[in-house]
């Protein structure tokens, strides 16, 4: 009898040793994989820095505020593109916020279930799945003529393409990010809170304003930040409708250019090494701009939620 007991005990110990080892291996592989992502990001940054060293040496800080981009005479200033990137992204963000918040509240609070809600939710997620070059084509052939006729009515130069058209395209492309995340956040508001507010005689609008929005604020803002990141880096769709002129836009209807689209446009045919290096430095600047905006955004979210 005791023999059997001993064998059973030995087997149990063996099993748990194996289990512990398995756990360790699992944990180690998780750490390794997450670290590899960190390695990639840091290596990425360093590659950008090293490759753009010739341009940094030759141009210095003038690269950031220079207003001329002239590959023929080796004059490189990225200011118009920096401005174009920030203008299109923030304009798109401002236009998109009412739409994405409204969708989030509508799907999270008013119609959380049912076929219509599912349909709408899938449609919004589909927007995010459409390849950006298709947005570009659609923008060029459908949106741009509409913008042009609008420009004719308000009496500005009717280019059609430009900062405004790009912002509209970006708006459509980034809505799903803020809307989906926002919807989840709105749904996660505990019903006990909402019911308590109703019990106190609050109307639905008051519940949204005083309970749901404050509770889900950090999630909504995180969604906005996510969509801003998407807008900053978007290349293809913007390239096709922004007009690609390297002058400083004098209004939101003027044509312009963004950092991402300059890289996409000129990288393949960049003949001189300084030119190539300057294009990579644009990539570095874009990288840093994204990092800075993300950090500032996180700060803002933290401040809002701790209040």
């Amino acid at each position: 009898m005791s023999n059997i007991m001993n064998a059973w005990k030995a087997a149990k110990i063996k099993r748990s040793v194996r289990q512990i080892r398995g756990e360790k291996i699992f944990r180690a592989s998780l750490v390794l994989i997450s670290l590899s992502i960190l390695v990639i990001v840091v290596a990425f940054l360093f590659t950008l820095v090293i490759q753009s060293l010739p341009s940094i040496k030759a141009l210095g800080f003038g690269f950031l505020y220079g207003k001329t981009w002239d590959p023929v005479h080796n004059i490189y200033g990225t200011y118009p593109f920096l401005l174009g990137t920030l203008l299109t992204s923030f304009l798109a963000l401002i236009i998109s916020i009412p739409f994405s918040f409204a969708t989030a509240i509508f799907l999270g609070e008013y119609y959380p279930r049912g076929w219509f809600s599912d349909f709408l939710k899938n449609a919004i997620e589909l927007i995010a799945a459409v390849p950006s070059v298709i947005y570009g084509f659609w923008g060029l052939f459908v949106l741009v003529p509409i913008v042009r006729s609008l420009e004719l009515k308000i009496g500005v130069t009717p280019y059609g393409i430009g900062i405004f058209a790009s912002s509209l395209i970006l708006t459509i492309m980034i809505i799903p990010y803020a809307a989906s995340l926002g919807r989840e956040m709105v749904r996660m508001v505990p019903s006990s809170l909402k019911e308590a507010a109703y019990a106190l005689g609050a109307t639905r609008y008051e519940v949204i304003k005083n309970v749901i929005l404050p509770y889900s604020r950090s999630g909504l803002l995180a969604g906005v930040l996510l969509s801003l990141g998407r807008a900053l880096g978007e290349t293809m769709a913007v390239t096709m409708v922004i007009g690609n002129t390297s002058v400083i836009p004098d209004s939101i209807f003027a044509p312009g250019n963004t950092m991402a689209s300059v890289i996409a446009n000129e990288f393949t045919e960049a003949a001189s090494s300084l030119y190539l290096s300057a294009l990579i430095e644009i990539g570095l600047v874009l990288f840093l701009v994204t990092v800075i905006i993300n950090m500032v955004g996180k700060r803002i979210i933290k401040k809002f939620t701790s209040e």
Binding site: T68, W69, D70, P71, V72, H73, I75, L140, F141, V144, P145, R148, Y159, G160, I161, T239, M240, G243, N244, T245, S246, P255, N257, N265, E266, E269, A270, A271
Partner: peptide
Amino acid sequence: VGKGTSVNWPTGLGGKGNPGVSGLIKQT
């Protein structure tokens, strides 16, 4: 201005590739 694969254009709009340029021409 000079010559090159990309130059600093004094005026005008840029379209990507032949289709981009002809799209601009056709539309305006």
